[in-house]
Design a protein around this nucleic acid. Structure first.
Lengths: 127, 127
DNA sequence: TTACACAATGTTATATTATAACAATAACTA
DNA sequence: TAGTTATTGTTATAATATAACATTGTGTAA
């Protein structure tokens, strides 16, 4: 189950090599030469890759980034920093943050093992 | 600057009265009788309302909810819990959480005053 | 007041993001 | 090797969001 299908592999490779998050239709454009011709083929692969934790969706940008953090693969507990100028996105891998959020209880005492956190600010270069 | 324009007020009222987050085209449908006929009129009002902190966008759902938390109005630092079954969304107002996230530093020592956090789980009723 | 600046509106068209529905094929498993 | 499930291919369409341009309203300062 760790083996990706053909389309999944093609699309994962593209995202994994990209220095920036990729949008679905950018991906589509880039894999058309490899025979993936329809949006749905892209979205299906993306869905699966998200499901198994190989990539994450940056919700505020409708874009996808490869996971480089073993911590989030199972938990689907993700955190990113996003530069509001250059749009650089970095996955945050902080044991302290993960721990804090995983243990956070709401007013009803409810805990949440799944979450998505997006920080916004300026990256080193843009500051 | 605290006074909303006509369209902004109409759309804010609708969102504010709604027990659940509303999507842009649901809003459009509901305000057509009040003379707001085009998507752009809705999106412009939504943009403004988000900008001034009267509403928030639930990014993972492409939906909008009224703010009931004075804390986030300035900071644009928001947190929500989302039920994965009934889609109920609740804004989280926790001084501890706000403080922790506002003071969180990434690997480069960078702090972020803007963030959006979405917790996923099951609400009381759906558990 | 009046002119200026700026915010908000109205309108048409279109771009972008995502899914429905159905048929066929490949891969895994009992 | 039949049955099951995942994956693929394809066409069409739904859902979300913005571009471009013309017009109207609103606040403010001379």
């Amino acid at each position: 189950m760790d083996n990706l299908s053909k389309n999944q592999q093609i699309i994962f490779d593209l995202i994994d090599k990209s220095p920036e998050p990729l949008k679905a239709y950018t991906i589509l454009f880039n894999v058309q030469k490899k025979g993936i011709k329809a949006p749905l083929q892209v979205y299906r692969a993306l869905d699966k890759l998200v499901e198994i934790g190989k990539i994450h969706k940056i919700e505020s940008r409708n874009a996808f980034i490869a996971c480089h953090n073993s911590r989030c693969q199972v938990a689907k507990a993700t955190a990113f920093s996003i530069c509001e100028i250059c749009e650089k996105v970095t996955e945050i891998s902080s044991a302290g943050l993960s721990k804090y959020l995983a243990n956070f209880k709401d007013k009803d005492g409810m805990k949440y093992s799944k979450y998505n956190l997006e920080f916004f600010g300026l990256c080193k270069k843009c500051r």
